[in-house]
Amino acid sequence: MLMSGKHPDAPSVALPGGIAIESTNLSYQYVAGQTAVDDVAVPFYAGEVTMIVGPNGSGKSTLLQLLLGHLTPSAGTITVHGQNITGLHPLNRAALLSYVPQTPQVSFAYSVQEIVAMGYWAHRRRALRASVPAGDQSAMDRIVQTMWDLDIHALAQRTFDELSAGERQRVAIARALVQDTPIILLDEPTAALDVWHQLELLDHLKSLARDRQKAIIWVTHDLNHARANADRVLIMHEGKLAAHGNPKHVLTSDILEPIYRVHVTLRDDNLLFSRFSSS
């Protein structure tokens, strides 16, 4: 059912297993004195699905916005494919990083197809600036293909505000995939999806990581999902990097219990949670 599709004009990818994006000593304060991200140094690898977990307010989404370059770090740097993200031209940055928000927002009644096509805008602009053919026909094919992949082709002419939350999320994912970047940042992309679409998306992103060496960075609340599907897990706690590594090694009751303040037990390779008794 899922096809990885043909992407004829994909930008160059990082070496298999190489570092796609990396943060060093990264800190961010929304207001002076309130540190949301505190001295985080972590690499993200091409060809891997990295999942970021952590309790509410632990700095997951802030870290994602920093990696995206949308927030400017208070301290530290982010290096994408060897370049400092703050020095990147917006169009070049859009060729490296794409982003799927938790709840996509659109202010006017664009059709699904228009929105998905906007993922291609930066590429077209870059081509214009470099005076090379933009390859619009292949782009159109890619847009249609991606809408098929995400099961939204039937909605192509519907306007965004007419869609359900899950459909909206799939449109935002399609837009990011049309952008065809080596690094894809997703902020709880499956929150509004039904089980079937969750599994489809997972397969699709995994195959993008494996077959096309993309770095998938995925913020999630579902610890079992992270344990089962991530190549690497990153646990955030109070702005700091609490643990980082193989999910089987990182998602353990020793590490999770103090962070989440719940009992964690492992049964049939599944994490089970229960509240501490009041005594």
């Binding site: 916005q65 995206l68 370059g69 949308h70 917006p90 169009l91 940055r93 859009a94 060729a95 990083l97 794409s98 982003y99 928000p101 996509p104 927002q105 659109v106 202010s107 006017f108 664009y110 228009e114 906007m118 993922g119 805008w121 930066a122 602009r125 935002a172 837009r175 990011a176 952008q179 940042l185």
Partner: peptide, 14 residues
Amino acid sequence: NIASFSDAEAHSLG
């Protein structure tokens, strides 16, 4: 057109 998305989305799109 792209600025009709949220700030972070518009930013990510270039």
